[in-house]
């Protein structure tokens, strides 16, 4: 466990933003916070990073929180001086953490693709460049935990891929635990290993990416040369298959061994031209979880 929050509540006046939220984040997780606008994701992130104090509840840290730089954060907007260059902004973060200036400043700029920005002021950067600078600042000092609120906002497709690859690399190579929120669920599903679903200030579900993938029934869709004969053969061999027309395909429900399917086709002289499996995706899962909550 690197962070465990229990019974977190946050009130703004009479308005209750967080209602008894429990979260457990393990070391090495890429933890995706999923929820609609105003659900309480940013408030949770602010509390995790020390920007806000919870009205009630407790947070345990599995690392030395008091040591400078153990938490890197990009919460809401990138926190950068608009009248300074990218390099100067990184230098300020080095000073903030009590680090000495060295070559790692240039390396960090190269890592986020801002090495050629020279003396250009950050205020003149595009939104994507500002996001990347914000991520670079969050990464200064190799933090134990990176808390990133909508880090791919404003990034172009190439930028999104680069940031995704960068975060995966940081997680795998440096063991940095990442807490991330994004409205782009398809992106989040490619990154996160664990998820927390927040709705109306409540944590309604915590699960792993495996849980999501296996939440619904798996479906295998096969295109073949003789679909009717193939479907009959599959049924005869005990598979729950059915025929879908236009274009003609065979679908098999449930967990199956692809080699068994291939052997049946080969023995019958049937040629498989396409085969793919369909799993439950994050979007579907989110709709199920939140929908269930709303109708519960």
């Amino acid at each position: 466990m690197i962070l465990k929050a229990t019974g977190l509540c946050k009130n703004y006046g009479s308005k209750q933003i967080l209602k008894d939220v429990n979260i457990t984040i393990n070391k090495g997780d890429i933890y995706g916070l999923v929820g609609r606008n105003g659900a309480g994701k940013t408030t949770i992130m602010r509390i995790m990073t020390g920007l806000q104090v919870p009205t009630k509840g407790n947070i345990e840290y599995g690392y030395e929180r008091g040591r400078l730089g153990t938490t890197g954060a990009l919460v809401e907007l990138p926190s950068i001086y608009a009248n300074k260059s990218a390099e100067e902004n990184i230098k300020f973060q080095y000073l903030n953490l009590g680090l000495k200036f060295d070559d790692s400043i240039k390396e960090l700029l190269t890592l986020v693709g801002l090495e050629n920005t020279g003396n250009k002021k950050a205020g003149k950067f595009s939104l994507g460049m500002r996001q990347r600078l914000g991520i670079a600042i969050a990464m200064v000092g190799d933090p134990e935990v990176l808390v990133l609120d909508e880090p791919i906002n404003g990034l172009d497709p190439q930028g999104i891929i680069e940031v995704r690859d960068l975060l995966i690399k940081l997680n795998r190579e440096k063991g940095i635990t990442i807490v991330i929120s994004s409205h782009i669920l398809s992106e989040l599903s490619k990154l996160a290993t664990r998820f927390g679903f927040i709705e109306d200030g409540k944590m309604i579900r915590e699960c792993t990416s495996y849980d999501i993938e296996h939440a619904g029934e798996k479906l295998m869709i096969i295109k073949s040369s003789n679909v009717q004969e193939f479907n009959a053969l599959l049924n005869a061999n005990g598979f729950k298959s059915e025929l879908i027309s236009n274009p003609d395909k065979v679908t098999i429900h449930g967990e199956v061994d692809i080699i068994d399917i291939a052997m049946i086709a080969k023995n019958a002289g049937i040629k498989i031209t396409d085969l793919r499996t369909v799993e439950t995706d994050l979007e579907e899962f989110y709709v199920d979880v939140v929908g269930g909550m709303n109708h519960g």
């Binding site: 938490t71 926190s79 001086y81």
Partner: peptide, 17 residues
Amino acid sequence: GRDYRDGFIRNKLTAGH
């Protein structure tokens, strides 16, 4: 005031100060 306007004050807090 620039610390507020540009938000760098948040970096100081998240750093652990």
